[in-house]
Design a protein around this nucleic acid. Sequence first.
DNA 1: TTTAAATCCTACTCTTTTACTAGGAATAAT
DNA 2: ATTATTCCTAGTAAAAGAGTAGGATTTAAA
Lengths: 132, 132
Amino acid sequence: MKMSTKARYGLYAATELAKAYDGGTTLSVADMSASIGVTEKYLEQILSLLKSEGIVSAQRGAYGGYILTDKPEKISVGRVLRCLENDLKIVDCIGATCGRKKCAPHALWNKLYKNINEFLDSITLKELLEEI
Amino acid sequence: MKMSTKARYGLYAATELAKAYDGGTTLSVADMSASIGVTEKYLEQILSLLKSEGIVSAQRGAYGGYILTDKPEKISVGRVLRCLENDLKIVDCIGATCGRKKCAPHALWNKLYKNINEFLDSITLKELLEEI
DNA sequence: TTTAAATCCTACTCTTTTACTAGGAATAAT
DNA sequence: ATTATTCCTAGTAAAAGAGTAGGATTTAAA
């Protein structure tokens, strides 16, 4: 039950992009990787996931980089993490029916899942920057 | 960010023991493994963790087995899961200081950790049986 | 038009963790 | 004694996580 490095690095990158958003400047992978403490190659892959979810957009070529597609106060932490952490499903049977009938824990997993998502959706990247 | 089978099997076993608690009867590993869908040998290991945490006690030898050390309404789901899931730490730096200064996500992990624990501590084995 | 700086794409590999399997020792009721 | 049980420890196979690696494509600027 650990958050992956992908999710952690990705959220950190998102906060860096949130800082840069007001200036309207893009940040390259090289710009971010050092301060996050992750290789450029790995961070590339992570940002491509954020891009495919529409959280960031990319400008290719020289002087290019990444930028948030929306204001930091419009992007929730939950949205970022779900995209990087397999939808935050803590057990496989979330949202489905497990084979077992009368599975008390099953209802628990669904409630826990909902609880986690609601918490993470209640915090935006802007709020994250302002320290929780 | 997945709950391990150990935690899931263990919680299921705990609910079985909760059902049996009123009768004061012990349940053996063999009694439980079939309905949970796990091998006896694996379940043995899981129950030994619950025992070392004082959640269950064991009676060795013939006609022995396991029994909760306290009433189902006194044992929280959180206590069971923390014992099986490395204290439910979602990132390593929970409760400690990560190297980074000014790590906005760090505060988030701590809050998320607290949120999850409070939720799981608010539910007892008895309530779990009564369906959530 | 060349060059340099960047994203994009895909495949591979190493490491760690998870999820068991296995064998037998110790204990206790009958 | 025998049988049913927990207890203890070591080993192993599979899956997931965490990167590595190489190059193709795109774009701004010199």
